[in-house]
Simulated assay, not measured.
Amino acid sequence: MTWEPAPLSEVVELFSAVRAPWWIAGGYAIELAVGRAFREHADVDVLLLRRDQLGQRGGEYERLERLIQVFGGPE
Rank of each mutant, 00 (worst) to 15 (best):
L49E: 08
V12I: 14
D45T: 03
E13Y: 10
F71V: 00
G58V: 07
Q69R: 13
A42H: 07
A33I: 07
G27M: 06
R57Q: 06
R19N: 13
F38S: 09
Q53D: 03
R51K: 14
L64W: 05
A25Y: 11
F15S: 04
E60V: 08
R57H: 10
A20F: 05
S9Q: 11
A37G: 10
L67Y: 05
S16H: 12
F15V: 07
Q56T: 03
E62L: 10
R36E: 06
R36W: 09
F15D: 02
D43Q: 02
L14K: 15
L47G: 04
G72P: 06
P5W: 04
R51E: 13
P5H: 07
A37F: 11
R51I: 06
A25P: 01
E65K: 08
L8R: 03
V44P: 03
R57P: 00
V18W: 01
V70R: 11
P7W: 01
R57E: 06
R66S: 08
E4V: 13
P7N: 01
L48I: 08
L67F: 02
H41V: 01
E62Q: 08
V34Y: 13
A42D: 06
L47S: 03
L32D: 10
A17D: 15
E75G: 13
S9K: 13
Q53L: 15
R63N: 06
G73T: 01
E65T: 09
D52L: 07
Y28A: 15
W23L: 04
E75R: 14
Q53S: 03
R19F: 06
P7F: 00
R57W: 09
S16I: 09
W23D: 00
L48N: 02
L49P: 03
Q56F: 02
G58K: 11
A25E: 14
P5G: 03
L32E: 12
A17S: 15
G72C: 09
P7V: 02
L67M: 06
P5T: 08
R57T: 06
L64E: 01
T2H: 12
A29G: 10
V18F: 08
E75H: 12
R57V: 07
P74A: 13
L64K: 05
E65G: 03
E13M: 09
P5C: 01
E10Q: 13
R66M: 05
L64N: 04
F15C: 09
A29K: 09
G27I: 07
R66E: 07
E10G: 07
A25L: 08
E4S: 10
G72K: 09
G35C: 12
A42E: 04
R39Q: 06
T2G: 12
A42T: 04
F38K: 04
R51C: 04
M1A: 14
G26D: 14
A6Q: 03
Q56E: 02
V34M: 14
W3Q: 04
Q53R: 10
E75Q: 13
A33F: 12
Q56W: 00
E60S: 07
R39N: 07
A33G: 14
A20G: 12
P5Y: 02
D45Q: 02
R63Q: 14
Y28E: 11
